[in-house]
């Protein structure tokens, strides 16, 4: 994965990612994507190229349970969100939809930096700054759900997991 960094601060909530006023009026993910982060940065959508990264501070995605938030990010062509920590509901939603999340310290990355992420080696390279950042790998189950393309695909294939246990 290689792309430009779009840098955000701490505690970015789902209302900023996609405003609550669209959660009813728009159901098409590509249409949702056009309104990505628009209350924070006007015309943000036009600044993205396919494969870019969202790079944020701690607690990314706090707030509502709206799945439109990770859906809009994915539909906008963002390849992964990189942050030191994610809010829990957002974390589940993103993995369920097959949007890659990368847990890493993002303090040294600046807006516009060119990044290359290598998940097999658990590292991100900031090519602009020539630094290497370590990734904290996801737990195995989440890794598998992501690889399947999301939880719908994963559980369709692996129904037995939910039947097990008890």
């Amino acid at each position: 994965m290689k792309g430009k960094a779009h840098k955000f601060g701490d505690d970015i909530n789902t209302d900023y990612i996609i405003s609550g006023r669209y959660k009813f009026s728009i159901t098409d993910p590509r249409e949702l994507a056009r309104h990505l982060f628009e209350d924070l940065i006007a015309n943000f959508y036009n600044k993205i190229s396919a494969g870019d990264f969202i790079v944020a501070g701690k607690n990314f995605g706090c707030g509502s349970s709206r799945e439109q938030a990770p859906l809009a990010i994915k539909a906008a062509g963002i390849s992964a969100v990189i942050a030191p920590s994610f809010a829990r509901i957002f974390y589940r939603n993103a993995i369920n939809l097959g949007l890659t999340l990368i847990e890493a310290d993002t303090g040294r990355v600046e807006d516009g930096d060119l990044l290359e992420a290598d998940l097999s080696k658990d590292t991100i390279r900031d090519l602009t700054r020539n630094i290497k950042i370590k990734i904290r790998p996801l737990p195995a189950l989440m890794q598998e759900i992501l690889n399947a393309g999301g939880s719908v695909e994963y559980f369709r294939k692996h129904r037995s997991i939910l039947k097990g246990n008890r």
Binding site: R92, N93, S151, V152, F155, R159, I161, L162, K163, N165
Partner: peptide
Amino acid sequence: TGMGSTDIAIILAYGKNWFR
């Protein structure tokens, strides 16, 4: 606890879901 729609659909389908 709150979850997204996909998680609720999984529960609605199987009566269960994964948790940490």
